[in-house]
Simulated assay, not measured.
Amino acid sequence: MNIVVGALVGRLSYKCDILFRVIDIRETNGQKTAILYGEDYRLIADAPIQDLKLLPPLEKHRIAEEFHSMQEQSLELFRQDIDLLKNKQEFNLTNAYREDLSYFQMPGKVLHLDGDRNYLKKCLDMYEKIGVPVKGVHCNEKEMPEQIGSLIEKYRPDIVVITGHDAYSKAKGKKSDINAYRHSKYFVRTVREARRKIPHLDQLVIFAGACQSHFESLIHAGANFASSPGRVNIHALDPVYIVAKISFTGFKESINVWDVVRNTLTGDKGLGGLETKGVLRTGMPYSMVDDDE
């Protein structure tokens, strides 16, 4: 068995339920341990080399197709939500379609910090599909607290996403102990630094966390939405669905938490938050300048 960095593997002890990428192999006292990143889940784990199985192409394809099917279903539900929002906004703006008004809309701008370069690309592709203006930055989770302040000043976002990989380890402590989590404490520090810049929850909307993250600490630090209330794994694209709904909701409207969470891939065991106002703004008139005139 040739397990190398970059290989796609499953863990035998977990019946190969999650597809992982090997990102590092370390040797201690003759024992080789692989550091693993979930391919579709924001989970970081380690496992002895002998517990890993190289997945054959058919099995990898099956897992990928399963995830793709869930992703497409969630995206379709989300698009229905956005269409309903747009129809409601158009109805109100045109006085129940009795007035022919030209208008334009400015969705909220997103700054997305991600500890995983591959996940960041997937998220940016999805933002583009949906039409959310975004700036993506790849940043190691441990470096995020030092980077967030200058990034907020540079990009002046309406919404910030602070995510990457995380995991709870029972061997390190109780679920209430933030030191028992791989990266939660860095996410918490990053949220606090962001709130030092912009304290008000409705002037900067923050999503923070990854798989199994310490939800309560993230919310108390100042996040509007976070993972993971049930300490479960969250999908790579879950943050996109959360912030896109906020980006397309008018700034005078409050967002019901369940309305935001229900169409994500993980649901309310993996994601939760506080009632928050949207950030979309509408202007008029819509003007198309003709350069030939």
Results as ranks from 00 to 15, higher is better:
136 G>T: 05
140 N>A: 15
133 P>I: 07
146 E>N: 12
138 H>A: 10
169 S>M: 11
162 I>E: 06
77 L>D: 08
115 G>A: 05
125 D>H: 09
124 L>C: 08
87 N>Y: 13
96 A>N: 12
141 E>D: 07
109 K>H: 11
94 T>M: 04
148 I>G: 01
177 D>Y: 08
173 G>A: 05
137 V>T: 04
82 I>H: 10
156 R>S: 15
164 G>E: 08
103 Y>V: 04
148 I>S: 00
169 S>V: 06
105 Q>D: 00
118 N>V: 12
122 K>G: 10
77 L>G: 09
174 K>W: 11
131 G>P: 05
147 Q>E: 10
134 V>A: 10
97 Y>Q: 03
97 Y>V: 00
95 N>V: 12
120 L>T: 01
93 L>I: 13
119 Y>W: 12
125 D>A: 10
154 K>P: 03
158 D>Q: 07
163 T>P: 02
111 L>T: 03
176 S>I: 09
158 D>T: 00
100 D>T: 07
177 D>M: 05
124 L>P: 00
144 M>D: 02
114 D>H: 02
140 N>I: 11
88 K>S: 15
141 E>A: 01
128 E>Q: 11
123 C>Q: 12
174 K>P: 05
105 Q>A: 11
123 C>K: 15
82 I>C: 07
172 K>Y: 12
148 I>R: 01
166 D>M: 03
116 D>V: 10
177 D>K: 09
124 L>S: 10
79 R>C: 08
109 K>T: 11
89 Q>F: 11
121 K>R: 14
109 K>Y: 06
84 L>D: 11
126 M>N: 08
127 Y>E: 08
143 E>C: 09
110 V>Q: 01
102 S>P: 04
169 S>E: 09
140 N>R: 14
172 K>A: 13
146 E>P: 00
161 V>Q: 01
91 F>I: 03
76 E>A: 15
110 V>D: 04
119 Y>D: 12
